[in-house]
């Protein structure tokens, strides 16, 4: 995952020009313990929330805008089956999804006409009550974990030291440079690999401070009890069915982040990246000879 070094990180001392190359690459202590714990708790929590969320979606695979929305009302997104064809409809665009969405075959070979397939949901066969139980318990894990993590990033210096976007980094040229490097799969080497790049900073900030809070607040906005306690919350999102739609869109954005995140870990060196998120220690990729 990210490259984040502590100021006090024990980077290996520079080596004299005539000395033989160091036997092992320089290591930095990149991820402190709270980062590592939160990362893995979150990985499990978000997976459970996603899969149980897809089960809940299966109970009514239609999305609306506004306060109300049921079968007689216009859905801007729907997953359904017509005859032998499963499809996803967004607006007026219909995409055939037979086998994956709307109509699929389960492990026992039985054809199911549900939105998301059994391998993507908790539990695997239709069970709204269990889906809700998992979702509503792990929502607590996400919310408490995120709150603690936000407090720690703000108070512990992580935010200022590692995620803070410095003035020069906002320059369009700098951002464009980072985009080009990513596109060419050219990852920073040497000491530059110890810090977050601008795209990394922006995506982590977006996930931690925008997407995850948005998931929690749109989730709360769907609760009739919270609606009575905090009537303003559901209004902020434009009504309960809008909150449900935004919840789904933000979840899709998190899935997109996850896919890019995994791709980057694989491309940047999965062993080194994984080890750094387990032990904290990251081996700096050596500078390439000119």
């Amino acid at each position: 995952m990210g490259n984040m070094a502590e100021a006090e990180a024990p980077i290996a001392p520079p080596v004299a020009a005539d000395a033989p190359p160091p036997p092992t690459p320089a290591r930095v202590y990149r991820h402190r313990l709270p980062v590592r714990i939160w990362h893995w708790v979150n990985a499990v929590t978000l997976l459970i929330l996603l899969m149980s969320g897809l089960m809940i979606f299966n109970a009514h695979p239609r999305l609306y805008w506004g306060d109300y929305g049921a079968n007689a009302d216009h859905a801007w997104l729907a997953i359904a089956a017509q005859g032998d064809t499963g499809y996803l409809r967004i607006g007026e665009t219909r995409i055939e999804t037979t086998g994956v969405l709307g109509r699929w075959t389960d492990g026992e070979g039985v054809v199911r006409k549900l939105a998301f397939p059994g391998w993507a949901t908790i539990p695997t066969s239709y069970d709204l009550a269990s889906g809700r139980r998992w979702h509503l318990l792990f929502a607590w894990v996400l919310a408490i974990g995120l709150t603690l993590y936000m407090l720690w990033t703000a108070l512990g210096g992580h935010l200022k030291k590692d995620l803070h976007v410095r003035r020069g980094e906002w320059a369009p040229r700098h951002i464009w440079h980072d985009i080009k490097d990513h596109a060419r799969l050219r990852f920073p080497r040497g000491e530059a690999a110890a810090r977050y790049g601008i795209l990394q900073k922006l995506s982590y900030i977006a996930v931690i401070f925008l997407l995850l809070p948005l998931m929690i607040f749109t989730g709360l906005a769907m609760s009739p009890g919270i609606n009575a306690a905090w009537p303003w919350l559901v209004e902020v999102f434009g009504g309960r069915q809008s909150a449900r739609s935004i919840h789904f869109i933000a979840a899709s954005a998190l899935v997109a982040f996850f896919l890019v995140h995994i791709a980057m870990v694989l491309l940047a060196g999965p062993v080194n990246e994984l080890r750094s998120m387990v032990t904290g220690w990251f081996r700096l990729p050596p500078e390439k000879d000119a």
Partner: peptide, 12 residues
């Protein structure tokens, strides 16, 4: 009032 079904739909 708005009626919220456990399945996810709402009707007023």
């Amino acid at each position: 009032t708005r009626h919220d079904c456990v399945e996810g739909w709402s009707a007023i």
